[in-house]
């Protein structure tokens, strides 16, 4: 492969990383808002959050991307830059998976902690911010780490819409060289390296956050790489 083609691949890596960071941030925001709304005391709010989760987890990420690219522009009369369209579709979809993680972690906090907060007459917002979240967030990190790898794999989908990410640059190089085995092997290895780095970073983060609440991180063999759970009619495990 010539250096010009490597430049193409590097550009692809950059687009993939941008997309990963932006949609990861959006997904985190959505996950916390919707996940906390799932524990709201008003039934209506809980229902809306549940509906959001069911709809966005029920449909395919790729169908969502198509929808954002093709249906939103004529329907609402504005067109998104591809990077933002991809971010929106991926962030909203993976945010719905994240919301279930947030809900599960909040539900797993010892009920005595919540009751203690009530007894000390904390407001619901204070309870969430000062008691529940600091204990729940470290527990969310391992499942979030798995979800992040899924999100990385999901970013490859935007190449179908012609966005110049890593998978797309792989296709361009294949067309240029007529040599598929080599380039796709490189592309797969690059994705694998990024995924590996992500899990390392998340493990470091978990260690740090758990040390903050006096806990030890989950030992390595227990850290099972699972795909985000997909059933959960109105609930399900976390």
């Amino acid at each position: 492969m010539t250096s010009g083609l490597w430049d193409l691949v590097l550009k692809g890596v950059w687009v993939t990383i941008q997309l990963l960071v932006l949609s990861g941030l959006l997904a985190t925001a959505v996950a916390f808002v919707v996940g906390i709304a799932r524990t709201h005391r008003l039934k209506f709010v809980r229902f809306l959050a549940g509906l959001y989760i069911e709809v966005f987890r029920g449909t395919s990420a790729l169908v969502m991307i198509f929808w954002v690219f093709f249906v939103l522009p004529p329907a609402f009369g504005w067109q998104l830059v591809p990077l933002w369209a991809g971010t929106l579709a991926l962030g909203l979809t993976y945010g719905a998976y994240g919301a279930e993680i947030v809900r599960g972690a909040l539900a797993a906090v010892d009920p005595a902690q919540r009751e203690g907060g009530i007894a000390l007459s904390f407001t619901p917002a204070q309870r969430m911010r000062l008691i529940l979240l600091p204990q729940a967030v470290p527990e969310m990190i391992p499942p979030f780490s798995n979800l992040l790898v899924e999100l990385l794999k999901g970013t490859a989908l935007v190449s179908i819409m012609g966005m110049g990410d890593l998978a797309f640059s792989g296709n361009l190089v294949r067309l240029a060289l007529q040599e598929s085995a080599e380039i796709y092997t490189y592309i797969l290895i690059i994705y694998f390296v990024i995924a590996f780095l992500l899990t390392r970073i998340m493990r470091g983060l978990e260690k740090k956050l758990k040390a903050g609440v006096g806990k030890k991180p989950v030992p390595e063999p227990d850290l099972e790489l699972k795909r985000a759970e997909t059933t959960g009619v109105g609930g399900g495990g976390a």
Binding site: K153, A156, G170, R174, S180, A181, Y184, L188
Partner: peptide
């Protein structure tokens, strides 16, 4: 840990 989409391309073209 690698995208299904790229694996599909791999099998389809290689």
């Amino acid at each position: 840990n690698t995208p299904l989409l790229v694996q599909l391309f791999f099998l389809f073209y290689v």
